[in-house]
Design a protein around this nucleic acid. Sequence first.
DNA 1: CCTAAAGTCTACTAATTTGGTATAGTTTAT
DNA 2: ATAAACTATACCAAATTAGTAGACTTTAGG
Lengths: 142, 142
Amino acid sequence: MISKKTKYALNALVHLAKKFEQGPVLISYISEQENIPQKFLEAILLDLKNAGILASKKGKGGGYYLIKPPEEVNVADVMRLLDGPIALLPCVTYKYYERCEECKDEETCGIRDVFMAVRNETVQILKQNTLASIIGKESVQK
Amino acid sequence: MISKKTKYALNALVHLAKKFEQGPVLISYISEQENIPQKFLEAILLDLKNAGILASKKGKGGGYYLIKPPEEVNVADVMRLLDGPIALLPCVTYKYYERCEECKDEETCGIRDVFMAVRNETVQILKQNTLASIIGKESVQK
DNA sequence: CCTAAAGTCTACTAATTTGGTATAGTTTAT
DNA sequence: ATAAACTATACCAAATTAGTAGACTTTAGG
């Protein structure tokens, strides 16, 4: 499962993407609209700011706003930022590679192959999906 | 990430699958060969027994053995048994469905669509992979 | 230049999950 | 009878998750 942190981040980002280039939005407003505890949201938005996805304006009339175009913010990047690696085994992560302690021979490990396949498919789907494509899906009738 | 419990279970199952229909194997032997803490392994094997995948024989000459054919034990089932749902959001699990608390309208949620796609792909890969196919992969040169 | 609005920083904390360990059984082959 | 082997119950420490509290800094506007 992804953490609440990542889920909240995605909801907040979609919210801000809908208001791209329309000026700063209050934390308190996002918190209220998206049902996210305000103090928790503050920490999340700060992370997203430090990652260069959002920017903020302090003081009266301030708030947060998206600085990257919605097509350029994908779900994989957001997940990695807040939850760490996407892979289900440490030995199949790309950036945070670690050997499985108990593993006898990684080279011939059939279990590793399975989770490598899962990781590759998952990352591909998550990379394809951006804030823009998510907003696109929301307007389609089902 | 999957838990150590699931990883250990898979290693133990692959071990037992290689000795399918060759009589019971000692917990202590599996523990030693696969580098799994013995007491922890005991609990895991018991879970697998209660799920009808393994059986055990008590007393001298006893141990655990696989009762399902290796082709019929897939990774998805093992993961669900020990780690619970495979999906990354509660609202896209099949058996353990739960609404996301903060969600405004699940029907039009674009985030949900993304994680639904991930779940479907993941489950498909994990179902395809059985103890037999894992053992098959291990003998292939890379 | 004061003040209220708004983001920022540091430090807690409670509940849950994970990855175990300890101890005392019970069953069974020999 | 006894030793080998699985079983059941009960702990427990560390890490992670999902927050909260409170003081601080910045800035627009009067």
